[in-house]
């Protein structure tokens, strides 16, 4: 099967879009958090590749255009951010306090659970940047001596969990303010969570974008301090 697909320029994007589309239809039919289009697309694509024995490289050769668009799309998060600037200015203390507490919580949470699970130093620092955007997280993990592949996996998993359970978590913790929802999602689940916040509304999306950038930068410092703990 590899031969057939490896010469295709469109297979990678086609399977990604198709599985996402199926996920979207399922989500509308079945209103349950786990029926998340992104999760369904990822699981279905992995299953498809495994069943037909198609290499990841073969899939990626076509799908890499999606990867390529990620930076320009992230750059565009500044647009809703700018459009919501007034709201942001009026609530800057609340927003900043939320992000800072989120960053500290994330690092402490990893520290406490790493102690409980008796992780090694390398495993511990691998997990420290889990809540921030991949590109910053890789830098942090590398700097502190973590396993980069693992860091990327953990960051993506965090994002998908955030994307799936954002609304559930807001309900559980009774977070009703749109601004607070944005802070929660962007701080905990970076850009993949922000994609969900954007679906929830422009305010949530804009604040989530801001939070992911600020949390990412703050974590660089917080993680390097915390790396001395274990």
């Amino acid at each position: 099967m590899n031969d057939l697909f490896s010469h295709s320029a469109f297979f990678g994007v086609l399977i990604s879009l198709f599985t996402y589309g199926v996920g979207h239809v399922l989500k509308r039919r079945i209103r349950f958090a786990l029926f998340n289009p992104l999760l369904i697309a990822v699981v279905a694509t992995i299953a498809f590749l495994a069943i037909w024995r198609i290499d990841y490289e073969t899939y990626l050769s076509g799908a890499s255009v999606l990867n390529w668009l990620l930076t320009p799309a992230t750059v565009c998060l500044a647009i809703p951010l700018y459009e919501k600037l007034e709201l942001l200015k009026r609530n800057r203390t609340a927003i900043l306090a939320g992000i800072v507490s989120g960053v500290v919580t994330s690092v402490l949470c990893v520290f406490v659970m790493a102690l409980l699970a008796r992780l090694t130093h390398a495993q511990y620092v691998t997990l420290l940047p889990k809540s921030i955007t991949t590109a910053i997280g890789i830098g942090v993990s590398e700097e502190l001596g973590g396993y980069i592949t693992l860091t990327v996996s953990v960051i993506i998993t965090t994002g998908i969990i955030g994307n799936i359970f954002a609304q559930t978590a807001c309900k559980i913790f009774r977070i009703r303010s749109r601004i607070a929802k944005g802070v929660a999602i962007g701080t905990a689940a970076h850009a993949i969570g922000t994609a969900k916040a954007m679906e929830m509304g422009k305010t949530e999306g804009a604040i989530s974008s801001l939070s992911l950038v600020v949390a990412g930068l703050l974590t660089v410092g917080a993680a390097s301090v915390a790396s001395h703990f274990i």
């Binding site: 009026r90 609530n91 203390t93 609340a94 927003i95 306090a97 939320g98 992000i99 507490s101 989120g102 919580t105 994330s106 949470c109 990893v110 659970m113 790493a114 699970a117 992780l119 997990l127 889990k130 809540s131 693992l150 953990v154 998993t157 965090t158 969990i161 955030g162 359970f165 954002a166 978590a169 807001c170 559980i172 913790f173 009774r174 977070i175 009703r176 303010s177 601004i179 607070a180 929802k181 802070v183 929660a184 999602i185 701080t187 905990a188 689940a189 939070s211």
Partner: peptide, 30 residues
Amino acid sequence: LPFCIITVISTFVVMGISGRITQELIIRRR
């Protein structure tokens, strides 16, 4: 397994704490 548990728990806790702190501050000041 430990990585999954840590990831799930900390994602929820971070969302809860950062969101609630922002919300409380907004309610108090606005």
